[in-house]
Write a protein that binds this DNA or RNA. Structure first.
Lengths: 194, 194
DNA sequence: TTGCTAGATGGAACGTGTTCTAGTTTCGGA
DNA sequence: TCCGAAACTAGAACACGTTCCATCTAGCAA
């Protein structure tokens, strides 16, 4: 058979299944949030058997974190197109983080679902969470762009932590919309202003 | 009837039930963590019917957060006895937070259970979480003790956020033991040193 | 082309959080 | 002392994440 793509037919089918599953999860999460992502429904909507779904993603949280990783990657790509504005490192970092916050706030149910998965305590998702974290860290580092203050140990770590906690806080209804951006703004300036 | 206590018999029985339930939850969580706190087991161990358990605590997360609130209150009381050491605000804050971290690290399963509940996205537990948060904030404020830098808007908020995120990170196996204390140390000094 | 095997399928089954129901007990007020 | 309401009990029932099984199918290798 003429095999145009680099991958085998099987691999392509599998990649397609994987994409369908993630798309279904994102779709269900976008209305309804975490609870609306029911594994039976995801399987049905992706036209895949339940057992197959579990072969691809060993748990609901793995699935949602995989979806989150895709979102974060796409955020990263968009940032490469439109780099952050500002002369001071703090300003650029704040610009990036605020943009991301606004994007998340535009899809509250989806964000709630993804963040819920991200706060799972199950150690078996630690690796997947780390991947998300690494991307975020690189986004922040790029925005800081070799600023001397931002190179100090822990700066990026602190910003990631505040980011995560602010997200959980917003998703849980403990902080009003907009608070995430403000918290990150305050943090960045506390840490990065001389 | 001679009624020695200020409360009615009913109120005392109810308070006792509540305590038994929380004690049972803490006991089960101390081995086994979150998953080991099964509502049927809690009910059995507290000698209470399942329906009664749900009358007192509308969900497993409410129950565990109530348990956490008790632990945090007791931490606060202990701190009143042994105030933090250090001449600089940052040092006192770090002292307090490190002590708390060590206490939590001594009971990893219990901590995992309580933190898991604390990261629940369910808005109906927001109030209970806020209570925990408020206590923690007052602990930090007391440690900073009117230090000028610590009065800036957001300082306590940032520390709480880092504290929470570091906990989740540790509980989820993404950070080694000791990292929580270090992260808080770094954060406090980044923010509070002049 | 054919056969072998990894992977897919549909659906039953299980565990645990949560809800519900029907009957029983407790206790404060009359 | 006695009554009624509120609270408690035992346990069935339900929902959804997860596991398991028997069967079938697609695609690679020979």
């Amino acid at each position: 058979m003429a095999q145009a793509a680099a991958e085998s037919k099987r691999a392509r089918n599998q990649a397609a299944r994987r994409e369908r599953v993630i798309a279904a999860a994102v779709d269900l999460a976008s209305d309804g949030g975490y609870d609306a992502v029911q594994m039976r429904d995801v399987a049905a909507q992706a036209d895949v058997a339940l057992g197959t779904l579990y072969r691809y993603f060993p748990s609901k949280d793995h699935l949602l974190i995989a979806a989150l990783a895709e979102q974060v990657s796409s955020l990263q790509r968009r940032l490469l197109q439109k780099p952050p504005r500002g002369t001071e490192a703090a300003d650029r970092v704040v610009d990036v983080l605020r943009r991301a916050c606004r994007a998340l706030e535009r899809e509250p149910q989806l964000t709630a679902a993804l963040v819920t998965a991200l706060s799972s305590a199950d150690p078996s998702v630690a690796e997947a969470k780390q991947e998300v974290n690494d991307i975020l860290a690189s986004v922040i580092e790029n925005a800081a762009d070799h600023d001397a203050l931002a190179q100090r140990e822990g700066v990026v770590r602190v910003l990631s932590h505040v980011w995560f906690a602010a997200l959980v806080s917003w998703v849980g209804g403990m902080a009003p919309t907009g608070q995430m951006g403000d918290d990150l703004d305050i943090t960045a300036h506390l840490i990065l202003d001389r």
